[in-house]
């Protein structure tokens, strides 16, 4: 049996709302350690991987590891029907592995709403990716910035064109674009420390200058999720997809892997 409870408006609900513009169906794996979700957008440009450790939920129980496909858009629609103050329970029993039960309980416990959502096949949304600890050292540059600043950069650039070029070297981290009506270049002088301050742009890992071109549509989606958190961490490599990461509590994370645009 798997069962988690959370308050209406919790971070999981916020994240599910924020990923809707990219994914419809997600593969969810549950273990005693927590709730993880993987999803691939229909164009195979963005892979999303998140892990919510058990301690971020109001209560969490998972007797046996389980994996299920969830139609995220339908689930979010159901969750939206909850009222302020409701406690939301998500449950799957071993007897019935065909659907997931979502329950809302009013704060005074006088009203309960039960809903069943059918599970779907989401096996194609599983991707074999290395453990992050192995991958981090493969990125040429990793920097952190306030997520509000990241969103602002993406919005400012998308006025001019659909693409952004992110360049990182020891001296500067820049976001630039060039379109028919003009160009925009936003430069940040980074701090260099392993312990980034919340309000600044910090270069945490640097093995050499790197630049990548990315579609701003996907970057804005990443930025939307990141604004649920204070800071966003961005990794660039010419051999790996761009990585956008936000930390959830001590051990949790939400990571986007975005394929770049490349000139043939």
């Amino acid at each position: 049996m798997f069962e988690l409870t959370m308050a209406k408006g919790s971070i999981l609900q916020g994240v599910l709302e924020a990923i809707l513009d990219l994914v419809n169906v997600a593969n969810v794996d549950c273990s005693s350690k927590g709730f993880s979700l993987q999803a691939l957008d229909t164009e195979h440009v963005v892979f999303l991987s998140l892990f919510f450790p058990s301690e971020v939920f109001r209560s969490y129980r998972c007797d046996e590891d389980c994996s299920m496909g969830i139609a995220i858009a339908d689930m979010v629609d159901l969750l939206r029907a909850s009222n302020d103050g409701d406690i939301i329970t998500i449950k799957v029993t071993d007897q019935n592995f065909e659907d997931i039960t979502i329950t809302f309980e009013s704060p005074d416990k006088t009203k309960t709403t039960d809903m069943d959502l059918q599970l779907v096949d989401a096996r194609s949304h599983r991707l074999k990716i290395s453990e992050w600890h192995d991958m981090e050292s493969e990125y040429q540059a990793i920097f952190c910035m306030p997520s509000a600043q990241f969103m602002l950069n993406c919005k400012s650039l998308s006025v001019i064109d659909d693409d952004v070029v992110i360049r990182v070297n020891e001296e500067v981290i820049s976001f630039s674009t060039k379109g028919k009506s003009g160009c925009v270049n936003i430069s940040h002088v980074p701090n260099k420390t392993d312990n980034p301050e919340k309000a600044s742009v910090t270069l945490t890992h640097m093995r050499g200058p790197v630049s990548l071109t990315l579609n701003l549509r996907y970057m804005k989606s990443c930025a939307k999720v990141s604004t649920l958190f204070d800071q966003v961490k961005i990794g660039l490599s010419t051999k790996l997809p761009l990585m956008v990461e936000c930390k959830i509590a001590e051990k949790g994370y939400i990571r986007y892997f975005v394929a770049p645009k490349i000139t043939e």
Partner: peptide, 14 residues
């Protein structure tokens, strides 16, 4: 102009 790549070249689908 640059072409959008997919993730298939980076990750192996299971």
């Amino acid at each position: 102009s640059p072409t959008q790549k997919t993730l298939d070249r980076f990750f192996q689908s299971s």
